[in-house]
Design a binder for these strands. Structure first.
Lengths: 195, 195
DNA sequence: CTTGGACAGTCAACAAGGCTGACGTAAAAT
DNA sequence: ATTTTACGTCAGCCTTGTTGACTGTCCAAG
């Protein structure tokens, strides 16, 4: 079924992942639009992308884990609290849709967070079936300390990589999101908190 | 070390991945072109990076999950089998180090994979304490169908984003890896399978 | 040689956080 | 008014993470 070396023709290429090695053949100015270079997208190159996602995610997550551990929370609490903070007043089902987990998984950690006073849950005014969620001041404080941990890494990386690389990074990640949810996800991601 | 032309000042920043909504502070028409603007690395921009990693990883992983489900395996099996396939003959502790999980988590799934004939485990010839792991033909077949699922997404994304974006993507991810393990991880990632 | 420590891997028991299914209640549809 | 649908909750199961105790192997000091 597949390919050891199926080169699918594409524009795009990336000689080596990190900037440590000098870019091999760049082929600039080939006369093609947009990404410019026409080159082979081998399975090996795609595999590199997947593996890099794994390792980067693994290490990025670890920053927050260290903070969570001191509070007795896990990753599930983090995700839940983070998005509630991002969208104050969101309902449980909106949160479910964002996290793509089941109600029960969410409910367990959500209940803890409410009991612990990190999240405030109140019955929806127009639709009383809903529970509208908001982060309390304590919840916000925790979100902030979690963000700080991860932002430190991000800040270093973004500075080292430079603006163009960061732009590319964001473009690729945005494209990687399922098309169904992409629009709403990007609306969330790009929404300014203070606004 | 790793990167290209990195100024110490925050050069960088990417307004938004792609416009689902033109975010505030776009600085368009400032006379500086994209990539060259010197701009502040705000917390909001860092937060976008973290959130995009979450969503992209979530959806990327889902591709493989669908395949795994049909075989009765989970993500842990996937990771384990994948890296054994990448480094035939690797020992259990090397694998532990790659995955950064504890022995027992690994051992459970590893045992299943060995029992199911996906991985071959043999005593190390020079050091009989070691168990050297290799993917069997069946294991390789499974790895391939898992890769196919994820590569389809990667291929589309890489083509759509273009070569430069892909380059930036890989640069940023590589920088995001813990410095301690970065070198060895990149050696693994960049290692060509057929070589 | 042998003994003690370090290292590789295994096994047992437990916790976190996924999942499905059953259920009560509120809103909508008939 | 009654059925149907949607939202949130509760109970129970399974995967996969963790720590701790254990076996077997290697190597170095006595």
């Amino acid at each position: 079924m597949s390919s050891a070396d199926t080169p699918s023709r594409a524009r795009g290429a990336s000689p080596g992942p990190q900037g440590a090695r000098p870019p091999a053949a760049r082929m600039r100015g080939s006369g093609l639009n947009r990404g410019d270079q026409l080159l082979f997208l081998t399975d090996a190159q795609l595999r590199q992308g997947v593996e890099l996602m794994f390792f980067a995610y693994r290490d990025m997550i670890a920053d927050a884990d260290r903070v969570l551990e001191t509070r007795g929370y896990g990753r599930a609490h983090h995700r839940c609290l983070h998005f509630v903070w991002r969208r104050p007043g969101m309902s449980v089902s909106e949160l479910l849709d964002t996290l793509k987990v089941t109600k029960q998984s969410l409910n367990r950690v959500l209940r803890q967070l409410v009991e612990d006073g990190m999240i405030d849950s109140k019955v929806g005014p127009s639709d009383r079936r809903q529970r509208l969620l908001t982060a309390t001041p304590e919840g916000e404080a925790l979100v902030r300390s979690l963000s700080d941990a991860q932002n430190a890494r991000m800040r270093r990386v973004f500075m080292e990589a430079g603006a163009e690389a960061v732009q590319g990074f964001k473009t690729v990640l945005a494209d990687m999101i399922d098309e169904d949810s992409r629009e709403s996800v990007l609306a969330l991601v790009n929404d300014q908190p203070g606004a």
